[in-house]
C-alpha cells in the first residue's frame, strides 16, 4: 500500500493505450511531485489529452500503471478525483449562470462546498473584475471563460492540478498573471501537470518540461537552479522538430 503522503502526486509507469487499432500511448513514464510544475509538450494528436484522461480514470489502460497520490483512478475513481482539479481543453461552464454561480454549482457537484469568500478570492485571483463576477457567462470572451474554469480549479483546493492548454485564449498579460497563480500553487505544494503549446510560458514557469512523441516522453529537461532555467535554444529546436509548429 503506497502512502498518500510519500507517493508522488502523479506517477505513470509504462502506460500503453490504444483507441481501437490506433496506439496513442506506448510505454509512457511520467512522474510529478508535489510542489512541482510539469509542462507537457507535443504535436497535435501526440496523446497529451489522452494522458490526462488516463489520470482522470476516463480510460482503462491496456497496460502499465497510473497513480494519483497513490490511488488507481480506474479502480477508485472517486478517491482519485477528489485529489485532482482538471481544466479541460476549450472548457466552458453554464452560459446562463454568473461566474460566481457557476463556481458555486460546480463546487457543490464536487462535494467541495467553500464559503463565498473562497469563491470570491478565486475569482479575484484569476483577475475577474468585480462586475464580471456577477455577470452571466453568455457575455464572456473565451479568455474570461477560461479564467472562470481556472478559478474553479483553484477553489477546489486540491493537491493535483491537471491543465489542458490552460493559456489558450488568454492574452499575454493574462498569461503572466496565470503563471503567478501557478507559482502560488507551487508554494502550496500543489503538483501541476500542464499540457501546453506555449513554449515561452512553459520555460518561464515549469520545473520540468517533457516532449511527448511516439507515445512516450522523448526528451525531458529539468530547470537548472543557477543561470537561465532552460536552454531556450535547444528547447526551441526540439519543439519545432517534435511539434512541427513554431513556438
Amino acid at each position: 500500500m503506497t502512502n498518500i503522503f510519500t507517493a508522488p502526486a502523479i506517477a505513470i509507469d509504462g502506460l500503453h493505450h490504444s483507441y481501437g487499432a490506433n496506439p496513442v500511448l506506448r510505454g509512457l513514464d511520467l512522474t510529478v511531485q508535489r510542489g512541482e510544475i510539469y509542462a507537457l509538450l507535443g504535436g497535435n494528436g501526440a496523446g497529451k489529452s489522452t494522458t490526462l484522461s488516463a489520470l482522470l480514470g476516463f480510460l482503462r489502460p491496456c497496460s502499465g500503471s497510473v497513480r494519483v497520490c497513490g490511488t488507481d483512478p480506474v479502480a477508485d475513481a472517486r478517491a482519485a478525483r477528489s485529489q485532482m482539479a482538471y481544466v479541460p481543453e476549450n472548457v466552458s461552464l453554464y452560459e446562463h449562470l454568473t461566474a460566481r454561480e457557476n463556481i458555486g454549482y460546480f463546487l457543490a457537484l464536487a462535494k467541495a462546498e467553500r464559503g463565498g469568500d473562497a469563491i470570491e478570492a478565486a475569482l479575484s485571483a484569476v483577475g475577474l473584475t468585480q462586475a464580471a463576477k456577477d455577470k452571466r457567462l453568455s457575455g464572456f470572451s473565451k479568455g474570461m471563460r477560461q479564467k472562470v474554469a481556472i478559478a474553479l480549479a483553484l477553489a477546489r483546493d486540491v493537491p493535483v492540478l491537471l491543465l489542458d492548454e490552460p493559456t489558450s485564449g488568454l492574452d499575454p498579460r493574462a498569461v503572466l498573471e496565470f503563471n503567478r497563480l501557478l507559482d502560488a500553487a507551487r508554494e502550496r505544494e500543489v503538483a501541476v501537470l500542464m499540457v501546453t503549446h506555449d513554449l515561452v510560458s512553459a520555460v518561464d514557469i515549469a520545473d520540468r518540461i517533457g516532449f511527448l512523441s511516439e507515445g512516450k516522453i522523448e526528451e525531458e529537461q529539468t530547470a537548472s537552479t543557477a543561470g537561465p532555467r532552460f536552454d531556450l535554444n535547444a528547447l526551441h529546436d526540439r519543439y519545432t522538430l517534435v511539434a512541427g509548429a513554431p513556438a
Partner: peptide, 11 residues
C-alpha cells in the same frame, strides 16, 4: 464544453 469537466468531478 462541460462534459469532461463534469465527469472529472468526484461527486
Amino acid at each position: 464544453g462541460r462534459l469532461r469537466l463534469l465527469l472529472s468531478l468526484p461527486g
